[in-house]
Every structure is written in C-alpha cells, then in structure tokens.
Design a protein around this nucleic acid. Structure first.
Lengths: 213, 213
DNA sequence: CCTTGACACGAACATCTGTTCGCTCGTATA
DNA sequence: TATACGAGCGAACAGATGTTCGTGTCAAGG
C-alpha cells in the first residue's frame, strides 16, 4: 500500500527542511521548482500532494508558503526560553525582576517545557553563588529556575527571604499553626522553625540545573 | 536613542511569535493587520520597518511571508535533543545504549547547548532512582546527562561501575599511582579508594537536571 | 494493440501579498 | 504661527504565488 517515496519526492522533502532551517519560512512552489530544476510548478504541486497524503507535510490551501513539516513544529514548540536575571546568594535578597521587554535580558536558558510545567509565565532563573544551599542539594554554580509567587502551598519548595536573618534560602515550606517550618531537601539536615512574619516568599522552585565543568 | 517599543510594535512582535509557533510559517502583513484590528496594511508595514531597524525581525523584500524573527531560528538550532535511555540506580549497571535511529526512543529532553557543550554526540540521559547519590548532590528523580566515554581525566565527574561492589556511582575521578580515588561532590563526605581494575567508566557527567514537583 | 495509472509538462488564471503614495492628526520645537 | 516629525490611514498597483487543465510519456497488465 504505502510505496516508497520517489527520488523526486525525497528531494523535495529534504529541500523543504533545508530551506526552513536556512530561512525560517517555507519555500514557494516555484522556489522548489527552480532549485530542483523541475520543469513545471504543477509537478511540484503533484508531488507535494503525494507528500501530504503520506502525512509528511501539511499544506494550507491558497496560502503562499503554506507548507508545514509534520512533527517538526511541535517539537520546537516545547522549548521554553527563560531569562537569567541575576544571582542568588545567602546574604542577599533576590534581584528585582523588572518587567522590561525580554530583548533587554541577554542571558537566557532554554528548556523543554516538561521540566518547567506548561506555563512559561513568571519564570525566571538565577545563578547560585556559594554553598549555602547544599542542604537543598544545590551547589555553587547551579542555576535555579523559579516561578514568581508570593504565597506557597505546604510542601512546596520556595525561595524565601528571612527578614531577621537577612538571608535567602531554599526550603520546603510548611505552615504549622502559628509557626513556619522550613525543611531542607536533604533529609539528613534539621528544619528551621520561625514565624510567618519573618518569611518573605520570593518564588517557587521549578527546576535545578547543573552544568558540570 | 533607542526608545521603547510602542504598544503596537510589541503586539505585532508577539503576534508574529505566536503565529509562527502555531503555523510553522510567518504571517502576512494583512493577517497581522486583520487580527490586530489595524486599519491599514501600511501601518503594519511602517511598524515592521521599525522592528527591523531595532534588529528584532528581518524582512525579506518582495517575498510573501518573508518575516524572520531575529535570534529565534538560530536559538532553536542551539537546542540539542538528548534521548533518555533508562534509569541509573545503585545496584544496576547502566543500560546499554543501542545505536538505533533516534526516532525509536520516545523520551527526550531538550537543552540549550551551553549546558552540555558544543557536540551533542554521545550524549544520553538517565533518570536517577533512589538516594544513593545524594553525596553527589543528586537525588531521586533527577535526570543526569552523560557523555559516553571509557576513560576519564583526573578531576572529571564520571559514572563508574564498581565491579566488586556491583554498584553504579557518580564520583570525581582521580588516578593516583596504582590506586583510584573516587571523591564525592559533597565535600563533607569521605572518598572511596579502590584499584583501577575495579572501576569501569561508563560516561562523563555533563549536566544534572531536577524538575521539582 | 489497447487501457490504465503514475508521473511529468507548460501555460493561463486568479488570488494572495508586499509596496507605494498622498493625506491627516497631534505633539513638539523654533 | 510655521515647521518638523512620528504615527496612522486608505486606496491603488504590481509582483509573487498557488491552482487548474489539457496534453504527453511510459511501463504494466489485459
């Protein structure tokens, strides 16, 4: 039933892929025709229809350059771009995230969205300085991805600013009656107990990244 | 000199991004005009020219849908796709990586290449099971990215299979005379000393990922 | 020898789509 | 007040681009 693609059809498919990589938009029928030395646009049209029936491309009728490569676009969609807005260290509050246009921040990381949840809204990243968070299995040089939020559910790992201690830390958050328990991720370490007015939640931990030298 | 983008310009830029994500090809001027309720194509043209001067997009003259997002196409190219080939646990060797075509492995993660070095060759990822590597600041559920290699330089963090102990572990590797020192990443832990014939290097640690629930 | 179907050809056609141009409006600036 | 300029408007134009259709070729099968 499903016969092999003809040489011409394979050439067209490869050409579309290459063109898309090089230009960021799909080719026209005439560009395919010309570069592949095909005598007529209708030949290209004919073979594009074959490729569409094989579900290798999708064509959008009456739309110029309306060729999509099946399976390709969705793969690129799943990548989220996250700005690295500064550093996180024990003795400093988190830098304020100015809501400027994204083009101002030149430092970014890219992750597939299954690592950060569906919504990219409110996500930002920080470079970790120092070893104050080894109890959270986070070391110097790591990158933490956070989602900006002021409150936390019990059990969520959050970045908190401890007002009295003048210190930023990453802990699991538990509101227990009139006190707050901050539990290190490392089960070997003891929790911190403090009062709700002492903790200022900066954001929720979403992902930790470590690029080993 | 460089004034902020107008609201309309920002809307257009966002629209192009969204359109590109959804359709795989760029919008026409008239599509922008219609969906953004702009009265004239020339207004769109005017603002696209502004965006091009700001180097946010590139326009290809006399080409339909000839709008490229600057930095986007190349940014997507810098994303490497790494197959997740199995699990890593203390009591098991690493799964054998069959060199099958990548389409067979349905589990992948995507990272920008600055996290994994330039070459994507030989990279693979594993899900960590259990807590046997907390001394390397790696916990249950983390994903480790490795580069397949059989030897190691001193100081590199490698996944090794300890033959006698029948155990996989992640340690910094030091060849010291006729013995091998395996140093945990956590400075609080003591190193392991063993003989070269006992260690079988599986790969070099490149990146650690932790997606917090 | 005839028929059929896959594949190809070339030209005409009808839109689709980017470009241009004269005009208006409001806000600074001289 | 006069001028300049950013921003927007609407219409007309021309080139870019997908579609259609009649025709031709060739190999396989009857």
């Amino acid at each position: 039933m499903t016969r092999a693609l003809s040489q011409r059809q394979r050439a067209i498919l490869e050409y579309i892929e290459r063109f898309l990589d090089e230009n960021g938009y799909p080719p026209t029928i005439r560009e395919i025709q010309h570069d592949l030395r095909i005598s007529s646009t209708s030949v290209v049209d004919y073979n594009l229809n074959v490729l569409e029936q094989r579900n290798l491309i999708r064509r959008n009728r009456n739309i110029s350059r309306g060729i999509e490569l099946v399976g390709r676009r969705s793969a690129e969609r799943r990548v989220v771009r996250i700005p690295v807005v500064g550093q996180i260290a024990a003795g400093q509050p988190l830098p304020v995230l100015e809501e400027a246009d994204p083009s101002n921040i030149d430092d970014h990381i890219e992750l597939s969205d299954d690592l950060v949840g569906k919504q990219p809204d409110g996500l930002f990243a920080l470079r970790v300085k120092g070893f104050s968070m080894v109890d959270a299995l986070i070391s110097d040089g790591d990158i933490v991805v956070l989602r900006r939020q002021q409150t936390a559910e019990n059990g969520e790992t959050v970045a908190v600013w401890l007002r009295r201690e003048q210190e930023t830390t990453l802990k699991r958050f538990y509101h227990e009656g009139d006190r707050v328990r901050l539990q290190p991720a490392n089960a070997m370490m003891d929790p911190i107990y403090t009062t709700p007015d002492n903790v200022e939640i900066q954001g929720k931990l979403v992902t930790v990244l470590r690029a080993v030298s």
